[in-house]
Computed example of a mutant assay.
Amino acid sequence: MKLRFASYNIHKAVGMDRRRDPERIMTVLRELDADVIALQEADMRFGERASVLSRALIDDFPWRVVPVAKRARSIGWHGNALLVRRGMEIGESHAIDLPTLEPRGAVCGSLTVDGMPFHAIGTHLDLSGLRRRDQVRALLRFADESCRAVPTVIMGDFNQWGRTTGAMREFSGDWQLITPGRSYPSRAPVAILDRIVACGRWKQIGSGVHRSALSTVASDHLPVFADLEMIKY
């Protein structure tokens, strides 16, 4: 089974032209054409934490929302949301609290395709770096306790510049660090903040940064993706 996983910090749908344009974000996602998408900054930060991507808008595209929200007008948790291609079976889903000095969290969806289960986790880690290592440890504990023996992929804005430095050192054993490339800032990217981490049950087929005329202006990040094939044991 081959799937495309993607991560995209959509900056609350505010582009480099300072316009909030949710439809532009969705069009970039259509260009990307991923099966599982982790979004960061998908909800407003204050008030009702309303989603910047309305459910009615998402309904016009080939994905549906994994139900992780704790607020009626939100699609995520601390801005983290998961979209999956229609036809995927969605099982249990979770909002994950992370140790933090800032409003941070993660979300997990239990998914099934063609009878094959797997877990997708989306996250947005600490900007300051003071709790980033603790946050990765919390994600790994959750993956070990809740996703044991089930293929797992973690996607998000890790806010970590080095490929294998800092908090990324916490991923050991059979975890595969996939760093598709420079994704921030979108117009002239220099930083590799966005990445995908897969357990040993996945084989990497390819990865990349989605750069197009639209994606360079739609958000301050470019979306990243990885094409993975599940390994049967």
Rank of each mutant, 00 (worst) to 15 (best):
N159K: 12
N159A: 14
N159E: 13
N159M: 12
N159F: 10
N159Y: 12
N159W: 12
N159P: 12
Q160L: 07
Q160V: 08
Q160A: 13
Q160N: 10
Q160C: 11
Q160S: 12
Q160T: 13
Q160F: 02
W161T: 02
W161R: 04
W161L: 01
W161A: 02
G162R: 07
G162P: 00
G162S: 07
R163V: 06
R163S: 06
R163M: 02
T164M: 05
T164S: 13
T164I: 06
T165K: 10
T165L: 04
T165F: 06
T165C: 04
G166Q: 12
G166S: 14
G166E: 11
G166P: 10
A167M: 13
A167P: 12
A167C: 15
A167D: 08
M168W: 11
M168C: 13
M168P: 09
R169H: 09
R169F: 03
R169A: 10
E170S: 13
E170P: 06
F171L: 08
F171N: 05
F171M: 07
F171W: 15
S172R: 15
S172V: 13
S172A: 15
S172P: 04
S172Y: 07
S172T: 15
G173W: 08
G173N: 11
G173I: 09
D174S: 15
D174E: 15
D174G: 14
D174Y: 09
D174P: 15
W175E: 11
W175L: 11
W175K: 11
W175R: 08
W175I: 11
Q176A: 05
Q176N: 09
L177E: 05
L177Q: 09
L177R: 13
L177K: 12
L177F: 07
L177M: 13
L177V: 13
I178S: 05
I178A: 06
I178E: 03
I178Y: 04
T179M: 02
T179G: 00
T179S: 06
T179C: 07
P180M: 00
P180K: 01
G181W: 00
R182P: 00
R182T: 00
R182G: 00
S183A: 10
S183W: 01
S183I: 00
Y184G: 01
Y184C: 02
Y184L: 08
P185C: 10
P185L: 10
P185K: 08
P185S: 09
S186V: 03
S186R: 07
S186N: 08
S186L: 06
R187S: 06
R187A: 05
R187T: 03
R187M: 08
R187D: 07
A188N: 10
A188Q: 09
A188D: 06
A188P: 01
P189N: 06
P189D: 04
P189L: 05
P189K: 05
P189G: 07
P189S: 06
A191D: 00
I192R: 03
I192E: 03
I192M: 01
I192P: 01
L193Q: 02
L193R: 02
L193G: 02
L193Y: 11
L193W: 04
L193C: 01
D194F: 01
D194W: 02
D194T: 02
R195E: 03
R195T: 03
I196M: 12
I196T: 08
V197D: 03
V197L: 12
V197A: 09
A198V: 12
A198H: 10
A198F: 11
A198K: 11
A198Q: 10
C199D: 15
C199W: 09
C199M: 12
G200Y: 14
G200D: 14
